[in-house]
């Protein structure tokens, strides 16, 4: 019975709201995942547009949030990529905002966490790496692959270094996607487990009724930590995107 009451995986279930016609043997459907993705897009756009609606010289609360949000990413992109990297600003801003909003929406009770599905995070990560490759090859041609051949390395260990560099480059999308996925998944599972302890102890009655305060406190503290992690992972995703793009723009370093 206990094993059934704490079902930490149930929250990641994808529900179908209505299905779309199959294409190429794959079934497409409008799911809760799709709903929360669109909700995140809507919330981001709404906040930014509503925040700038009044175009006040002295910003109000919403406008301050909008401007802080904008300038935070702008500063980050400018710091890592320099002035020529500002054309990637919309991309980095979209990635950061999408991940951040998806994480924060997922923190609401009963809400679905889009970023806790490996397909979403892996797709975003692979997209970033493909953009890095495309930009690098477009800007530097074959010189881009000097990224894997560091200068000043003795010739007899160069193959090993190059191999390591290639592996490290190929592991980037894996680590980028899995980090976000793992953090979100683990955080939500741990939250669910501690909340489940509360429910179990209260249900058992007696001492457990009062002892439930401990897992409850733990759940509250973990919620705060998860909000921090939700922000931090979005930030890390965005800044690693910047760092990888920097490799594409300046492969010599």
């Amino acid at each position: 019975m206990a094993a059934q009451t704490i079902d930490p995986i149930h929250q990641f279930q994808v529900h179908e709201y209505f299905s779309l016609p199959d294409m190429g043997g794959m079934s497409f459907a409008f799911t809760n995942s799709a709903l929360f993705m669109l909700a995140a897009v809507f919330l981001i756009t709404f906040t930014l547009v509503a925040g700038t609606a009044r175009r006040a010289l002295v910003p109000g609360r919403l406008q301050s949030v909008t401007e802080l949000w904008y300038e935070f990413i702008e500063k980050m992109v400018h710091q890592v990529l320099g002035h020529e990297g500002m054309k990637f600003f919309p991309l980095v801003f979209s990635l950061f905002s999408f991940v951040l909003m998806a994480n924060f929406l997922g923190m609401m009770p009963y809400f679905f966490t889009v970023t806790s599905h490996v397909i979403i995070t892996a797709t975003l990560a692979v997209m970033v790496i493909l953009i890095v490759l495309a930009v690098g090859i477009y800007k530097h041609g074959l010189h881009f692959f000097k990224l894997f051949v560091p200068s000043g390395v003795p010739i007899f260990i160069l193959p090993f270094i190059s191999l390591i560099e290639v592996i490290s480059f190929l592991s980037r999308p894996v680590s980028l996607g899995l980090r976000l996925f793992g953090n979100m998944l683990a955080g939500h599972i741990v939250l669910k487990v501690f909340s489940g302890f509360v429910a179990l102890m209260v249900a058992s009655g007696g001492i457990g009724y009062f002892g439930a305060i401990f897992p409850l406190g733990m759940a509250v503290a973990l919620t705060a930590l998860e909000f921090l992690v939700a922000f931090l992972q979005a930030f890390v995703f965005a800044i690693l995107t910047c760092v990888y793009l920097n490799d594409a723009l300046h492969p010599g370093h």
Partner: peptide, 17 residues
Amino acid sequence: ALIGAALAEGLGIFSLV
């Protein structure tokens, strides 16, 4: 520091996965 922490933590997350 945050980038480093994220990279280090990512490896731990792999084992969790």
